[in-house]
Amino acid sequence: MSTSARCKPAPPGPGPAPGAQGIGICEYCDTVYRQREPRLNQVIRCPCCDAVQARHHAVDIDGMLALAVAALILFLIANVWPIVTLGLGAEQNSATLWGMIIAMWQHGAQLVAMVVAATLFFFPLNKMLMLGWLLAFARRGRRAPGFGRMMVALHYLQPWTMSEVFVLGALVAIVKARTYFDVMPEPGIYAYGALTLLITAFSGIDLRRLWDDTAEGSAQ
């Protein structure tokens, strides 16, 4: 734990509550409870409202870094290669993610183009880059430069990355197109499928643990 060994005079403002180690507060109902370390396959729930408080750390920081790097590589493949190709007679058309964004923009749906660009490209990319950066330092117990701001940014980005929704959307689009066209899957769709598996593996991990796993003052 990061005990403030170098005893500074208590700041006049809010501080970590004295003796607050081992105390948890449910973010859904504000109930104060005693924290326990979850055992293997155990999920700790709030004693008042049942919301999940902690899961067993099945993946350590090295493992998380490996997942983040793998996700980044898959994400690059998924964005560089086309997702699917349609054939109509001799003509063929394929689409990439950016092809989607540009097509929506050109057809007067600029707002949708921006939403797609943000939720499927910029937010996921930023999330993976920040995560990789933070974890590369955290595996030595250190806080990366910009640690605090990135942790806050990751918290706010969390609900707005939608790659896994897109995979399902691509499936629906393929089924709809299949009636009229020849559909050929491209590397992009496989990369997206694999990326979804990694996102699912990541979804059980509470990133807030990085606050506890890294030493305070190792970077500002």
Binding site: I83, V84, L86, L88, G89, E91, N93, S94, A95, T96, G99, M100, I101, I102, A103, M104, H107, V112, A113, V115, V116, T119, L120, P159, W160, M162, V165, F166, L168, G169, A170, V172, A173, K176, A177, Y180, F181
Partner: peptide, 23 residues
């Protein structure tokens, strides 16, 4: 956020189905 599904379907179909006069 799963509701965004239909938006992505329309975006992908728009990018894919561009066969000039045919479709």
């Amino acid at each position: 956020y799963w509701s965004m599904l239909d938006v992505f379907v329309v975006a992908l179909l728009t990018a894919l189905v561009r066969f000039d006069v045919l479709s």
